[in-house]
């Protein structure tokens, strides 16, 4: 499956937007937390898990989705939320803990919910799989051709929830795509020391569904694999498991001392940056001009900058607002 020029530009824009978002967030997060890192200080509250490097997993899949399709993401959700079209202003305000956030500041960066585009995420490992399976079941019961995508980290493939959801989705032939973002690390533990198989896509065999492995963070290969999986799901032919070998440029969380990580790893990964590679491909092989690519870059950067400005301008919630919305 070859992306059209429009699809290439869409993916490039989504990836550049996510990258600029994470790099901007990395700086904003450290405001007030230097020189001595204190997680409770500074402008942006809480933990911060950034996804720079993992953009192909988001853009290469979500380019095939519609607003009515469901996505459940992980504790590292920003790039996927951006590709799914989550309201960027309100998402950023949420991460800032502000009144205009998606949840008025109740959820924060690991708990982003935008029902307008059927996006949700969870801070618990593996807990994207069940809800995506359920969204797919709902689509089936409602007679819709909507699909659901569950994002998981490679570490989540060792959780019971992942295996149980794969079995259920396959048993009921539900329109769901499981996307494992293999960034090689579960916090400090390398995949080779946590996972009995080097490639999690082989686990699909145990649940009688197709399993696809995408090597080297290749956006075009993600596009191809996800295009087939989403189409298959829409045709009512059941679930697919895709594992994407991806990169994590930042630590597990901001402030992570990363004592476990080889010192040259990030530089090595950045030399194969997926956004640069996609841009090169668009210009060399797809008739995209420098001007078109730059226009997309300028546009998404402005959108991100505006979202951060929106968040900064938004007020703090009132303390007693905490009592609202426990029940529907």
């Amino acid at each position: 499956m070859e992306p059209s020029k429009d699809q290439l530009l869409w993916m490039y824009a989504a990836m550049a937007k996510a990258r600029h978002y994470e790099d901007t967030m990395a700086r904003a997060y450290m405001e007030g937390k230097t020189p001595k890192f204190d997680i409770g200080a500074g402008l942006v509250p809480g933990e911060m898990h950034l996804a720079a490097g993992q953009e192909p997993c988001a853009a290469g899949v979500c380019v095939h989705l519609r607003a009515g399709d469901t996505v459940t993401a992980t504790h590292r959700p920003h790039h996927v939320a951006i590709a799914k079209g989550v309201d960027l202003n309100r998402m950023t305000a949420e991460i800032y803990g502000r009144r205009d956030g998606l949840a008025g500041g109740r959820g924060g960066h690991m708990h982003l919910f935008d029902p307008a585009v059927n996006f949700a995420c969870s801070g618990i490992i593996g807990e994207s799989a069940g809800p995506a399976t359920g969204a797919a079941l709902a689509a089936r019961l409602q007679g819709s051709d909507a699909v659901a995508v569950a994002y998981l980290g490679d570490g989540a493939a060792n959780q019971g929830a992942f295996h149980e959801a794969l079995n259920l989705a396959s048993l009921w032939r539900l329109p769901v795509v499981f996307v494992i973002e293999d960034n090689a690390w579960g916090i400090s533990v390398p995949k080779s020391r946590s996972t009995a198989v080097p490639d999690n896509s082989v686990r699909a065999r145990g649940y009688d569904m197709p399993g696809v492995h995408v090597a080297d963070n290749d956006t075009l290969a993600v596009f191809d694999a996800a295009g087939e999986a989403v189409a298959r799901a829409r045709r009512g032919e059941g679930p697919t498991l895709i594992e994407v070998q991806t990169y994590r440029y930042y630590g597990h969380f901001q402030g992570d001392p990363e004592v476990y990580r080889p010192k040259d790893e990030v530089a090595r990964l950045k030399a194969r940056d997926p956004i640069d590679r996609l841009r090169g491909h668009m210009l060399d092989n797809a008739g995209v001009t420098e001007a078109e690519a730059d226009e997309a870059l300028t546009r998404v950067r402005a959108e991100v900058d505006a979202a951060f400005e929106f968040a900064r301008q938004s007020g703090e919630p009132a303390p007693e607002d905490a009592l609202e919305h426990v029940f529907a």
Partner: peptide, 16 residues
């Protein structure tokens, strides 16, 4: 803690 999930935002978490 009142019977609510612990909120993220600082003013609400301090309240809780």
């Amino acid at each position: 803690c009142p019977d609510i999930p612990i909120p993220y935002s600082r003013p609400m978490e301090r309240f809780a």
